[in-house]
């Protein structure tokens, strides 16, 4: 048989699925975002009108969109550094020659990652319950006033961020741990002979050597955190006072609660554009930093 034909036969099932159920819908979403597709169009396609960029324009004048965007940026800007910081710290601890029971600690710290978001979000809702939650009980034991964690607009997002850090840090911990283990031990030996202290070794060997790992971890985590949805859906329903309404939650409500699929597609594409732009920005920063470093050395 012709080798080219064989290859295409092997590729066919996967390419068909990805083409029909991913690529085609993505292109269609771009088209959909230029129409006023709503409940009436859902009932009868003849009600569909082309509106150009109107959905995007209207989005810019919609306070709820800016609220959702602000909340999402808040979640990313605070959640990503906290997440990665926790991952780095726990990976450093696990990598220490002084640490004991490493396999046990590694598995235990990773366990939250494989749990179902919905199920553990439900747990957190009870742990952070104002009246009977363990967290507030702990606060009262040390003489602090109870906090209405998920019912106070100032505390709801921090609580969701804490939840996300708890749920996700294990993932990057494993990747960073592998990065740490790939650093040649000779580098540390040479530094020790030169009399470099532990903090100096961390600053001048560990961090520079981890750089590619940290960049990749940051990009993946940022992209993931921009897609905040299940946590507010289960823990706060976007409230209180829309303080945990995320961009994706807005897309979900626009699209599948109010059936404004045109508007929702514009929201989805805007989010995509933002994630793409932020990723490019991170790559650009990383490359610039690399060049600066190369110039110095």
């Amino acid at each position: 048989m012709n080798p080219h034909r064989t290859a295409w036969l092997f590729l066919m099932p996967a390419l068909l699925v990805l083409g029909i159920f991913f690529l085609l819908p993505v292109i269609a979403a771009l088209g959909l975002s230029l129409t006023d597709y709503d409940l009436y169009a859902l009932a009868n396609i003849h009600n569909l009108r082309f509106v150009g960029l109107h959905n995007y324009w209207a989005l810019l004048h919609r306070p709820l969109f800016w609220t959702a965007l602000g909340n999402t940026f808040y979640f990313v800007a605070v959640g990503v550094p906290l997440s990665i910081g926790t991952s780095l710290a726990s990976a450093l601890l696990l990598n220490s020659p002084l640490a004991r029971f490493k396999p046990f600690f590694r598995t235990a710290l990773f366990a939250p990652v494989v749990t179902t978001v919905v199920a553990v979000a439900v747990i957190w809702r009870y742990l952070f319950n104002t009246k009977y939650g363990l967290v507030n009980y702990g606060l009262s034991e040390i003489g602090l006033d109870p906090i209405d964690w998920l019912g106070n607009p100032h505390w709801a997002m921090p609580t969701i961020i804490a939840f996300a850090v708890w749920k996700n840090f294990g993932y990057n911990m494993i990747i960073i741990l592998a990065g740490l283990q790939a650093i040649p031990p000779e580098l540390y030996e040479a530094a020790r002979i030169d009399g470099a202290s532990a903090p100096r070794q961390f600053w001048h060997i560990t961090l520079p050597m981890l750089r590619p790992t940290m960049l990749m971890v940051t990009i993946l985590t940022v992209a993931g955190y921009f897609q905040l949805f299940a946590e507010p859906y289960v823990m706060t329903e976007g409230g209180p006072l829309q303080s945990t309404m995320s961009v994706l939650y807005l897309m979900y409500e626009d699209g599948f609660k109010w059936w404004n699929l045109g508007v929702a597609s514009a929201v989805a594409f805007t989010l995509f554009a933002i994630i793409f732009a932020v990723t490019m920005l991170l790559l650009w920063f990383a490359r610039r930093g690399e060049r600066a470093e190369g110039g110095r050395g």
Binding site: L18, I20, F21, F22, L23, L24, P25, V26, A28, A29, L32, A223, F226, Q227, F229, L248, M251, G255, F256, L261, A264, S265, A268, F269, L271, F272, I275, F276, T279
Partner: peptide, 20 residues
């Protein structure tokens, strides 16, 4: 091209996918 498509969040496809 496939690897490049990884940057597209799955949620972008969800609205037309539902209609399909």
């Amino acid at each position: 091209a496939l690897i490049g498509a990884l940057v597209i969040p799955a949620q972008v496809a969800m609205l037309p996918l539902f209609l399909l």
